[in-house]
Design a protein around this nucleic acid. Structure first.
Lengths: 139, 139
DNA sequence: GTAGATGCAAAGTATTTGCGACAAG
DNA sequence: CTTGTCGCAAATACTTTGCATCTAC
């Protein structure tokens, strides 16, 4: 297990408050890429007085500090997930909304190659696959 | 040159109005993936009485009819481009905002493979590369 | 003639911000 | 202490919608 979000805050000089600790904990424990609203609801169960403005401010701060990463999948709201060393992309089930994380080194390599071909150095990228489950036999 | 947007409207049973014709023409002539605001400004120069609501309604209609496609690049507003037979992805210059369109068959193939590996059939995807121009000298 | 399109302004969402009170270092 | 954070409500940005009028077919 790598550094916790709290440790990352310390090492990056981000001041820790009760609210930030709560949000950090929730994000660490979430595997479902929550949007701000969901995150706010979860945080409210721990601290009913927390404000949605604080949640917005915190995810933005954490994103700028490289602690969280923001996704803008189809359908509006921004969703967040903890940023760890291993980069991955997302396969989204268009029926259920379920998200599968995957890594494909070959695609990564090809992306760099494409950028290079046009005279660019890749600094970031976004790859989202949208699919429907194939019924191999039942289910 | 393939079908014009007006022809597509006819063949898809989309009623043509002056406003739609104006928007269709602007989109056909645009190579810069305009957002609704930019499109509205361009349309206003042709018909100063056009409403932004009509622009929103029209791009949505055209998108649903498979005439335009919507992109949600980083930084907020939805941007549109005409949809032609050839699919392509985008390489965005993070400094200038310039957009380069590219196609990489190999990446396309790998995406399908990844989806399949997880038991999915790919119905859509989004690939955006963000890069900085490399000075041919160094790097 | 009629169903559907338009313009306008009002209403929705998602997100940000000003400000006085408050808490972390 | 002092600087930055919090909660609140108001503000903003983007997009959608109700309604009366108008227009394409």
């Amino acid at each position: 297990m790598s550094e916790t979000i709290e440790q990352k805050c310390l090492s990056k000089g981000v001041k820790l408050t009760d609210q930030r600790r709560i949000i950090a904990k929730i994000m660490s424990e979430s595997t479902d890429h929550p949007d701000v609203d969901v995150l706010y609801k979860r945080a409210s169960q721990v601290d009913s007085k927390i404000s949605i403005a604080t949640v917005y401010r915190t995810v933005k701060l954490f994103e700028e500090s490289g602690i969280l990463t923001k996704h803008e999948f189809k359908g509006g709201k921004a969703r967040y997930e903890e940023l760890n060393e291993g980069h991955h992309d997302h396969l989204i089930d268009v029926k259920t909304g379920e998200i599968i994380e995957f890594v494909d080194e070959e695609i990564e390599k090809l992306q760099k190659k494409v950028a290079k071909k046009y005279g660019y150095k890749l600094v970031d990228h976004k790859l989202e696959l949208y699919g429907v489950k194939v019924n191999s036999e039942n289910e």
